[in-house]
Design a protein around this nucleic acid. Structure first.
Lengths: 107, 107
DNA sequence: TGAATACTTAAGCATGTGCTTAACAATCAG
DNA sequence: CTGATTGTTAAGCACATGCTTAAGTATTCA
């Protein structure tokens, strides 16, 4: 999933899809890149679960999967909060003027 | 940055660093991988801004940069909320029983 | 000083990734 | 049916990535 997010073209496609579903050629339009290249990016995005797509007639409509984005977000948040709560514990330890567990007195 | 997050070894290193700073060989210990390989991963992580490191004597101490993690998180959140607010607007549009801007009557 | 520790640098290699072109479906419009 | 539109498949190529080993450098300790 982070692998899928690692490419700037794919991120740009995601940004576009935030505005609503789009077809393959619609997604390809802004890029100076062949259509098969875009299709490959879409395959990576779909394999990662970040988007889904459905083919109706000859046009494939792609849309974002918010729950997948939320998943990546949650991973990062849990890393960050783990780190921050560690800092908080350290801070409160350093701030505590006279911890009862420490026999030494503050000079 | 997402590029740096794309590798599972690097993500595992980040998870480890959430528990506090660590030296290079300390970070390398859990992995069945040569030390230079780990150093390369650390270079990628540091170049992306996700970690920083400082060499004291002969040991390099690495630690996480929470603000960078927050940045990646914010990117994902803004994508997700953009998408969700779009859905909300659609929903409220569909729910509105009689929009005053629409001249047609509901049959 | 001399050996052990803790990295660092450099070179090389296998595999993965992002792109291309060319050729092939499949569907819709006239 | 014809031909334009929309996408798909396949092959191939250049470069990036993740690893390795071998040979350094710097720092600490006995």
């Amino acid at each position: 999933m982070f692998q899928a997010l690692a490419d700037s073209t794919r991120r740009a496609i995601l940004v576009r899809l935030c505005e609503g579903p789009a077809s393959v050629s619609e997604l390809a339009r802004p890029f100076a890149m062949s259509l098969p290249a875009i299709v490959q990016h879409l395959q990576v995005l779909e394999a990662s679960g970040l988007i889904r797509s459905e083919k109706i007639g000859r046009v494939r409509s792609c849309s974002i999967v918010p729950s997948a984005v939320r998943l990546a977000e949650a991973w990062l948040r849990s890393r960050r909060t783990a780190q921050e709560s560690r800092l908080d514990r350290l801070e409160s330890f350093l701030d505590s003027p006279d911890p009862p567990t420490t026999p030494r007195s503050t000079p």
